[in-house]
Amino acid sequence: MEDPILQLHEALQAGERVALATVVHTRGHCPREVGAKMLIWRDGRIAGSVGGGCGENRIRLAALTALDEGRPVVEQVDLLDDPALDEGAVCGGVMEVLIEPFGS
Rank of each mutant, 00 (worst) to 15 (best):
R27K: 13
V50K: 13
R45K: 15
Q13I: 01
P72E: 12
D3F: 00
D3R: 09
E75V: 15
C30L: 01
A36Y: 03
G51Q: 09
V77Y: 01
V77S: 05
C91D: 10
G48M: 06
V50C: 09
V34E: 14
N57L: 13
L98A: 13
R45Q: 15
I46F: 10
V90K: 12
M95P: 00
I5Y: 04
F102M: 07
G35R: 08
R32K: 14
G88F: 08
E96L: 13
L64C: 06
M95I: 05
R32F: 04
A19K: 08
D43N: 15
T65S: 13
I99R: 14
L64N: 11
T22R: 07
R32Y: 04
G55I: 02
V23C: 10
A66V: 09
R17H: 10
A89P: 05
P101N: 09
E87R: 15
W41Y: 15
S49H: 04
V73S: 12
I5D: 11
D3W: 04
Q76W: 02
A84E: 11
C30R: 00
T65Q: 15
S49N: 07
D82C: 09
G15M: 04
A63M: 08
T65N: 12
R45T: 07
C91S: 11
F102G: 06
G35K: 03
D78R: 09
V34D: 05
D78F: 09
L79K: 03
D78I: 12
A66Y: 05
I59A: 09
G92E: 02
A63K: 08
A62Y: 07
V34L: 04
V97L: 08
V34M: 08
H25C: 01
E75D: 08
L79M: 14
P83Q: 01
R17L: 11
V97S: 03
R71N: 05
G88Q: 03
F102N: 06
Q7W: 00
C54H: 12
C54A: 15
G52P: 12
P4T: 10
H29G: 11
A11T: 00
M38K: 05
G52R: 09
E69P: 00
K37W: 03
E16V: 05
A47D: 00
G35W: 03
D82P: 09
